[in-house]
């Protein structure tokens, strides 16, 4: 944050509350376990030792929506799954964010048919779209870093 330059010998930092809260939120995102298809394999790989998602402060994949603030929709969402996804999203406490991981979650991908939702932005607000089929772990990490930048810039008034 560039605070180091302002940091004197006194141990005191002057900044705005929004910046501190945004910084704290962005560095402790707890994603929800929501693997739906092959993208989930890449998501697991992202989290595992080689790519190590916990470097960015999100080592905890929560099994419950009530403990999480990021939903990574990893895979295609069928029409039957759509109400479940929306229900889980509604159960997550504010502030919350959504990453549409992969082509299927972003726009339907190759599944342009009756059974698959053509992009999860039909049912939940999406913050970051990650392209790829499936995206490599680096791509997902890049998407998460983009989301962190977005969270840092968010005004406090948005989540009252």
């Amino acid at each position: 944050m560039g605070l180091e330059q302002k940091l004197g010998d006194m141990g005191i930092v002057t900044t705005s509350l929004e910046k501190v809260v945004g910084w704290a939120r962005s560095n402790a995102i707890w994603p929800m376990l929501f693997g739906l298809a092959c993208c989930a394999i890449e998501m697991m790989s992202t989290q595992a030792s080689r790519y190590d998602l916990s470097r960015f402060g999100m080592e905890l994949m929560r099994a419950s929506p009530r403990q999480s603030d990021l939903m990574i929709v990893a895979g295609r969402v069928s029409r039957k799954m759509a109400p479940v996804l929306r229900n889980l999203y509604d159960q997550m406490p504010d502030p919350k964010w959504v990453i549409a991981m992969g082509d299927c979650a972003s726009c339907g991908g190759v599944f342009n048919n009756y059974a698959i939702v053509q992009g999860v932005d039909e049912i939940v607000p999406v913050d970051v779209y990650v392209a790829g089929c499936p995206p490599r772990p680096e791509t997902l990490i890049d998407g998460i870093l983009k989301l962190q930048e977005k969270i840092k810039k968010e005004p406090l008034t948005k989540w009252q």
């Binding site: 992009g119 932005d121 039909e122």
Partner: peptide, 8 residues
């Protein structure tokens, strides 16, 4: 128009 949450 179908993607009602896309612009949020």
């Amino acid at each position: 128009e179908g993607k009602i949450y896309a612009r949020e």
